[in-house]
Design a protein around this nucleic acid. Structure first.
Ligand SMILES: [Zn+2]
Ligand SMILES: [Zn+2]
Ligand SMILES: [Zn+2]
Ligand SMILES: [Zn+2]
Lengths: 132, 132
DNA sequence: TATGTAATGTTATATCATAACATTTATGAT
DNA sequence: ATCATAAATGTTATGATATAACATTACATA
């Protein structure tokens, strides 16, 4: 099976993610009518589909929210960063080129063998920030 | 109460953190003899102490591990990054000066009102990396 | 068809975090 | 010292996130 061919459950969960306004937890996904309708009813089913999507680079996990988003430019191998609005949940995936190289430098200079970089920027989006 | 004066429970939990080899979850802290001995026995007690330590800048939460570490240079207001060994748990806090400014730029250029930056680098420390 | 592998289903349980409310302790004004 | 107040802590219950263990089904291919 190719890197971007999704299994049935992966397709269902991926559709849920791209339809969402922001990151979804596994249990939120499980609660969606769209997902229930397809017969998915156990958390593990969702987590397995999510794991597959993460492996294929089709989704990302937002660690600070214990939630998941569809990748906005899948599949990519460069590290991505996320701006997350703590009020409305709006989440934007961004390339972090300017940031990635210094971090890789810091890692390699200490002999650290880097696998993955998580960058999460928490704050208020331009809409929500206007009301403060 | 000054920013760096710790309450009784905060002192106990902070001592646990600085004695640890790597990040500890709240429940790991609760299990430590050092902590049990002091009579702390509910998760909430630990979480409250941790919240106090986070506010005072004496500890950090590692989002990808749901765990906590003592700050290595508290208190500081600049963002910090973490290198986390996925094998032995060794965690190193680093300044991320080279990285912070471009991220702030990206945020402000889109009108995002930035509160907090999480940077976590996952991989193998130099010790663990030798055995691969 | 026979056989092995990947995907999915099912049930139970482990792990992480907070709500609600009671009690105790520290602080500061009188 | 006494009292009023706020901060910290204790206690019990529950909510939210994640995985273990094992059974079954779908699918590829020899
Ligand atoms: Zn992506
Ligand atoms: Zn917003
Ligand atoms: Zn720090
Ligand atoms: Zn290591």
């Amino acid at each position: 099976m190719s890197k971007t061919s999704l299994t049935k459950n992966q397709q269902i969960v991926f559709t849920a993610l791209i339809s969402a306004k922001g990151p979804l937890t596994a249990y939120k996904i499980l609660d969606l009518a769209l997902v229930k309708r397809e017969g998915l009813k156990a958390p593990l089913t969702i987590y397995r589909a999510l794991d597959g999507l993460l492996e294929k680079g089709m989704a990302h996990r937002i660690e600070s929210l214990n939630a998941f988003v569809a990748c906005s430019s899948a599949p990519h191998k460069e590290a991505a960063g996320f701006m997350i609005c703590e009020q409305c949940g709006m989440t934007l995936e961004l390339p972090i080129n300017a940031c990635e190289e210094p971090l890789r430098q810091q890692a390699s200079s200490t002999g650290f063998h880097l696998h993955k970089i998580n960058i999460e920027m928490i704050g208020l989006c331009s809409n929500c920030g206007e009301n403060i």
